[in-house]
Write a protein that binds this DNA or RNA. Sequence first.
DNA 1: TTGAAAGCGATACCAC
DNA 2: GTGGTATCGCTTTCAA
Lengths: 340, 340
Amino acid sequence: MGYMKKVTIRDVAKEAGVSVTLVSFVLNAKVGEDGQLDCPVNPNTAARVLYVAQKLGYKRNNAAASLRSGRSHTLAVIITDIASPFFAEMCRNIENIAYKAGYTVIFASSDESAPKFSQLIDAMIGYNVEGLIVAPCPGSEPILERMQFYNIPTVIVDRDVPGDYFGRVLVDNVHSGRQAAEYLINEGRKKVEMLSYSLDIQSLVDRVSGYENAMKAAGLEDNINVHKISSSSSNAEAEVLEIMKDAKARGVEGFIFPSKRMAILAFSAMHAVGMEYNKEVDLVCFDESDVYNLSEPAIPHIVQPLNEIALRSFDLFQKMLRGNVSPEEKNILLKTDFIK
Amino acid sequence: MGYMKKVTIRDVAKEAGVSVTLVSFVLNAKVGEDGQLDCPVNPNTAARVLYVAQKLGYKRNNAAASLRSGRSHTLAVIITDIASPFFAEMCRNIENIAYKAGYTVIFASSDESAPKFSQLIDAMIGYNVEGLIVAPCPGSEPILERMQFYNIPTVIVDRDVPGDYFGRVLVDNVHSGRQAAEYLINEGRKKVEMLSYSLDIQSLVDRVSGYENAMKAAGLEDNINVHKISSSSSNAEAEVLEIMKDAKARGVEGFIFPSKRMAILAFSAMHAVGMEYNKEVDLVCFDESDVYNLSEPAIPHIVQPLNEIALRSFDLFQKMLRGNVSPEEKNILLKTDFIK
DNA sequence: TTGAAAGCGATACCAC
DNA sequence: GTGGTATCGCTTTCAA
C-alpha cells in the first residue's frame, strides 16, 4: 500500500482557492469565547480553509513553523532517573499540565551523569525548547549556568543549585524532618533516632536538621542519634543490621527512615533482629511503598507534593517566559505531605 | 546580563573563512575507525572548522536541519501510563538505547484515552518523528491504522492490535501463566487457583490459559479455579476478601496473582482471614513490588523482560526504517522472567 | 479581507 | 576539495 505525500499549507491553499497567508492565519487563529476565530479573515473563507485542511489530512510541520517563528511550544524536562516513581509521577503531572497549555514535553534522563546531562542540554537547545525544568545531577552546575546565555527559562526542582537566573521549586526538607520527629514524639516516643547516609546529600542533611530541631524543642536533645550508613548497598546491609541489633538492645522507641531504600533495608534488619513495628518501635518513613500501606497499621510516611511541584514548575516557567519575575516568585518552597 | 545571539552555520563559516557547505560537511561527518572524519574535506580545514564551531558555541538548529533533510533523528514513544513503573523502566531503557544510536526520544502518555492518543499522534507527525513505539490504548486501532499512510515505522508493545504494517514486540503470557502454575505444582501444591478480572484483558486471559494448560498437563483439571473480580477497586476489595475466606475453608494450597494490584489486594485479604504465605499457601505473583522481596521467603514473581523489550523494539524500528522486514522479523514474542 | 514575497538555518545539488 | 544557491514549509511583514 502506498503512502500519502505530506500535505502542506500550499496544497490546502490551492485546493481552497486562497493564498497560503490566509491558510496560515486561519490555522493559527484561536477560537474566541463566542466560538469565532479571532483573525482578520472572512468567516466563510475560514470555514472553507478549515474544511479543506481537515479533508486533506493536513498536519502542521513543526520544524518549519519553529524555524520561522522561533517558537517551538516545546518544554524540556530533564530528570536524573526516569525509573524512579517519584520522577515518573512528576513527569506525568507536568505533561498533563503542559499539554492543556498547548505544549509538548520532551523528557530525558541524565542518569546522574554530567556528560550525558551536557549532551541532553545541547540537544534541547537544538530543539529550540522554550523552557527547561530540570533536576540537577552532580556536576551539572556549570552546564546549567550556560542556559542564561541562551535566554532559556530554567526551573530547578528536587535539588538546588545556586544561581539568580533560575526559578526553583523545592520542598522544605527541614520541615519534613521536624514533622516526622514531632509525630513520633506526640505518640509518646522519647528515644527517637534516625538513619542517614554518610555521604552528604542536602535533602537528607535537611531532614536530619529538622529531626534535631524537633528533638531539642521537646527537650530530648540527649536522645538525638543519627546513624550514618554507606550508600553502597553491599556494606549498608550489614551496617543497618548492626544498628538495629544495637537499637533493640538500647530500647529505641522510634525511628525515622528518610528514604524508601533505607526503609526497605531497615525492615529486613528489624525482621532479622526481631524488632516489631507498632510494638516496641514506631516509624515514620519517606516516599511511597506498597510495604507502608500493607503494614498493620499502615506506616506513616512523608511524600513530595508531586502535583503541586508540577503545577508550580510549569507556572513558573510560563511566568519567566513572559517577562520579569520577582525573586520571591522565583523561589518556591513547598511543604511535604504527611500520609497517616 | 545579556544573552548570546544564536550562532549559525554562517557565523562559523565566516569566522573560519570557508563556505557553509564545508561547515555542514564537517559537522555532519562521522568519525571513522581511524579517528579521521569521513568527508571530502581537507583535514586541516576540518580541524579549523571544528575548532571555530566549538569556540563560538555553535549548536545545530534541529528545526532547520529537519525541515531540509526530512529526517529528525527523533523517535516517539507513546505509552498508556507514564506513572507505571513498568512503562517508566521501559522508557528509560529505550531512551538509553536510542541515545547511543543518536536518537532523541519524545515520550508521551495517552492515559488510556483515545482522543488524547489521537492528538499525541498528530503532534508526533508534526514533529517529523522517524518512528513510533506505542502501547495501544482502547480505541487506538483506527488511529494507528493511519500511520502507514504517513509511512512511519510503528512498533506495538504491551498490547496487540491487528495490522500487517506494524512491528510488534510482545510477551508470551500463555507461557508465563504456565510457568507460574508449574512452579507451584512442582512445589507439591495441587489445589492451585488464580485471581483474574471479570473484564477481558488479553494478557490476563492468556495467563489464565497458561495456568489451565499446566493444570491439565499435570492431571489436575478438576482443581482449576479462576476467580474473576471487578476491576473497580471499591468492589474488588470485598470480593477478594470473600474469595480468600472461602479459599481458606476449602484448603487452597497455591495462588497465582497475575498483577501487582491484585497481589496487594490479596495480601490484605489473606492477612485479614489469617491465611499464611509459605505455610498453608504458596504464591506466584506478577510484576515488581517491595512486598515480594520483603516477604520471608521472598515471593516468586514473574516480570516482563523490560530491557529486551526496549532493545528489540528499537532494533525493529531501525530495521523497518531501513527497508523491508520479513513478517517473522516483525513479530517478536518474548518469554517473561521468573524471579525466585 | 486578501495576497506576494522575504526569510528562518540547515542540507543537497551542482559546478568549479 | 571547495563554494554558490535552491530549497524544505511555514510565519510574518507589507502592500493592495
